[in-house]
Design a protein around this nucleic acid. Structure first.
Lengths: 334, 334
DNA sequence: GGTGGCCGTGAATACGTATTCGCGGCCGTG
DNA sequence: CACGGCCGCGAATACGTATTCACGGCCACC
């Protein structure tokens, strides 16, 4: 059983192949009788255009790519990727695009991702997760004027499409929430200061203090290594400043802080309120449940897909940098 | 900057386009001098074949599809999908295939999945997750002799490729483990009896008893609704039989049983040992940590990809039904 | 030295679609 | 009635690759 082609339909309907193409393309200016015959045949036999033939002609693939620069193991472990992918898939489908994914950190995988997708017309555009800071491949994408969107890259260059979590706003939101509930001495546990995430969230903390007319004191900021142990150590140091609230840059760090507070007999939230960041899975199950800033992964993915497709369909579209606001998940710890 | 084509290379190397194609295709029988010139140009300018043009000619896409019949929300929530996808991606990449994914439960999405992927030569084969019992679309795939593999479908038809978790073996493994550690009165909490999963796991339980020469008693089996509440209720009933161990068909049900045991002052594992199924994320964090049967998601995905590709590349390959064995994650509850 | 065979190569073609071009017929107008 | 313009449609072509076919040249063998 060979697939039904326009040529075959044309024979059946006693017209030429271009006429079939015109009817299927919604072109006007075709004899209604012929049009009906064609549509009838199509309906009867279920014609599907040959995607590759069409793509060859139109130089499109109606497919977007999602490239994750991660081990496939990381990919499987972190729910972030699944949620993001689901969102991208959703918006892509809504616009009639397919989704092709590729995760790899190996050199070979990278080559495959780049060569095989980019030039070969397999995809019309690409969403790139967690690219490196100075990435030669991205430079080449730009040189070739190939549509792409970066997610999770913080260098803030203005001539590239990007979608990012609003870390400044998130930390600001958390801090304001504490201020609004009457806290006065709000401490902050930061992460490694060379990371843009750390800097942005710290900025958000400062801005929230400014908003409320509260003083920013460097002594109220502790720097922690990532992980629970880092949180414990930082909390021990910051407790000397007698805070009545703590914002942690990350839930795991917050978890460590929580443990230390409990050890010291500090009541949460009565004596010290605590807020984390990322709304990790364990947050509802800590004791007390940890208030946390939720990254809007779904919207990040959706926006990335939307803007990528917009760029594909309008090559003149100017690059935009999109920030997606966070939500605050208020729980018992604050 | 127009893309480099074989035609262009041919001009640069003073040969004809077919010769370029021969060199790139690894064909022997080309003048070494010409071959070298061509390879030099390719190396210099980075030629990439136009995937659609090649596909049009070869009737291949070097892409496999993964179709999940789930809401995209479910998709994002359940780590199963991400892990499976990672495995499929890995094996696909190893064989030079790309991966195109599509998740949807809506009618429109289904149509897209089917029409747009299947006939249109966008993919060479398809992995289908959790198809319906009698699925017209799958019938059509079969009629058209289109390569596909089912995951998570238990009707056991012998003329279709399928990869499944070995539920019989998993339950047998869990039960044998309890027997080996000296338990004599082993109870079983089952799920809805119309599900094949329930039937298979119950079979595994019975087989393990037989293996050990222990009697199977219907009174030692309780049927539970899924979920923690179901587990609690079933555990209350089964405790009347004075078991010294319980196999639960599912971790959530096991979690419910655990709660009930603790309420009743039954010590776990001293008085009653407990084993769950699925190795859910929370298993290491229950009190005591719950021993559980781990479904080998990674291998299920890998096997599915491998067998699909084998089928794509050998249309004569006879359908196979693959069962992937489970692992037992022994923790303190047993 | 003539003929048969082999080897390297270019010309031609096919894959299925979308689009350009031009032709023939019809209608309307002067 | 003649002519110009428009409309519907088929012929031709392009997209880039892989493959078939046939041809010319060379060598070997009789």
């Amino acid at each position: 059983m060979k697939p039904l082609t326009q040529k075959r339909i044309a024979e059946l309907a006693n017209v030429s192949q271009p006429t079939v193409s015109r009817v299927l393309g919604g072109d006007t200016g075709v004899d209604p009788a012929a049009r009906d015959r064609i549509l009838e045949i199509v309906k009867e036999n279920g014609y599907q255009p040959h995607a590759q033939a069409r793509g060859l002609r139109t130089q499109k693939s109606d497919t977007i790519g999602l490239a994750v620069r991660r081990t496939r193991k990381d990919f499987a472990r972190d729910p972030f990727y699944a949620e993001l992918m689901a969102a991208v898939m959703d918006r892509a489908a809504a616009h009639g695009y397919h989704l092709s994914v590729s995760a790899s950190r190996s050199a070979e995988g990278e080559r495959l991702f780049y060569d095989s997708l980019f030039i070969s017309n397999r995809i019309d555009g690409l969403i790139i997760l967690e690219s490196l800071e100075h990435d030669e491949r991205i430079e080449r994408l730009r040189e070739h004027d190939f549509p792409f969107v970066l997610i999770g890259r913080y260098d803030g260059s203005r001539d590239v499409f990007s979608v990012n979590n609003d870390n400044v706003g998130g930390a600001r939101l958390a801090t304001r929430h504490l201020i609004d509930s009457g806290r006065k001495r709000i401490a902050y546990i930061s992460g490694p200061p060379d990371l843009t995430v750390s800097q942005d969230r710290l900025t958000g903390y400062r801005l929230a203090l400014e908003d409320a007319g509260l003083p920013y004191e460097a002594s109220m900021v502790a720097v922690a290594d990532f992980g629970e142990q880092g949180g414990r150590a930082a909390a021990r140091r910051i407790l000397a400043q007698k805070p009545d609230a703590i914002v942690a840059i990350d839930d795991l760090i917050g978890l460590g802080a929580l443990a230390t507070l409990k050890e010291r007999g500090v009541r949460v939230p009565d004596d010290v309120a605590l807020v984390g960041f990322n709304d990790s899975l364990f947050c509802p199950h800590t004791d007390p449940p940890l208030t946390s800033v939720r990254v809007n992964v779904n919207e990040i993915g959706a926006r990335a897909a939307e803007v990528l497709i917009a760029r594909i369909e309008d090559s003149e579209l100017a690059p935009m940098q999109i920030l997606v606001p966070c939500d605050l998940m208020v729980r018992a710890s604050s």
